[in-house]
């Protein structure tokens, strides 16, 4: 196993940031830790990168214990913290060279690994990092985290605040990196990115809700989901909220995802109800659960 986490708990004063977390990541796996801000993702990252000590539990990265062998871990992992953490007053190339040097390597030696990512920002190599756009900063940060050829790569919310285009590109890069046999442990608050991981852990309020492949997690959704729409979305949300057979009703894009409390629920019942409430262009169709549906159901 590349990463083993066993019953880790961590508190800050009264606040329990992590509550009895366990998970395992296989070598070469792209593992996603999915959850909103404040779920405890960053705390788990810091524990695994030896920056924090857990209150309880044990963990190992690449076979090294996070407490005893912290020095070995620091030699073997790449880490990209949540905030952009490079030197803004150094140029692109100086940043990269600096991180290569402190890990005792050179840009040349490991250029193959980062070429794919670095070529996109190389034209700006003499620009100060502080003056790069969001997407470029992120590529530079990833290049710096990779420059020493780490065996495990920790990426804490690399795509937060980044636009969909750059996000898509970033995930494509991760997929290619994975082929180089690097274990990638990544966190994100964007549920749609979960689909791109081999395995995910849903986390909220310091607790893990579920760990599995994205497919299995979607398949585990316990109810039938219907996507509903009518000409008046706001009224639809309100009416579904007061409908006595509603288990959940959440907006999903142009539809509302609806589940019923009844196991033998028939869509026609809902259509009748909505018609009675003067809705037009009513559409009720069965649909598949997404990761987000599962997350909301589990964290309800």
């Amino acid at each position: 196993m590349s990463i083993i986490v066993k019953n880790i708990s961590k508190s800050y004063g009264q606040v329990k940031a992590l509550d009895d977390i366990s998970l395992e990541v296989r070598p070469g796996e792209l593992f996603g830790l999915i959850g909103p801000d404040g779920a405890g993702k960053t705390t788990l990252f810091r524990i695994l990168t030896t920056l924090l000590l857990p209150n309880e539990g044990t963990a190992s990265v690449n076979g090294f214990d996070i407490v005893k062998d912290y020095k070995s871990i620091r030699n073997n992992v790449g880490y990209m913290p949540g905030r952009f953490s490079l030197y803004q007053d150094l140029t692109v190339e100086e940043n990269l060279r600096f991180f290569a040097t402190i890990f005792g390597t050179t840009i040349k030696e490991n250029y193959d690994l980062i070429r794919d990512i670095y070529v996109q920002i190389e034209p700006f190599k003499n620009r100060r990092a502080g003056r790069l756009s969001g997407g470029m900063k992120q590529k530079l940060a990833l290049s710096c985290a990779l420059i020493h050829k780490p065996k495990v790569l920790f990426l804490d919310e690399p795509t937060t605040g980044v636009d969909p285009v750059s996000r898509k590109e970033f995930w494509e890069m991760l997929k290619r990196l994975q082929k180089q046999n690097i274990t990638i442990f990544v966190s994100t608050p964007y549920m749609d990115e979960a689909e791109l991981c081999d395995k995910i852990a849903l986390i909220t309020d310091g607790k893990i809700l579920q760990i599995n492949t994205p497919e299995a997690i979607k398949a585990s959704f316990p109810k039938k989901i219907y996507k509903v729409r009518s000409s008046e979305t706001f009224k639809l949300i309100q009416d579904l909220g007061t409908y006595n057979k509603t288990h959940s009703a959440y907006p999903f894009g142009e539809y509302i995802h609806f589940t019923s409390t009844q196991s033998d629920f028939q869509p026609s019942e809902l259509i009748d109800y909505l018609k009675a409430n003067k809705h037009n262009q009513i559409e009720v169709l069965e649909t598949n659960a997404t990761i987000e549906d599962t997350f909301m159901e589990l964290s309800k």
Binding site: K71, Y79, S85, Y87, I102, F103, G104, A145
Partner: peptide, 12 residues
């Protein structure tokens, strides 16, 4: 800046 995190997680 958060760069201390990266320096700590390095062989320095």
């Amino acid at each position: 800046l958060g760069t201390m995190e990266i320096l700590l997680v390095s062989p320095l």
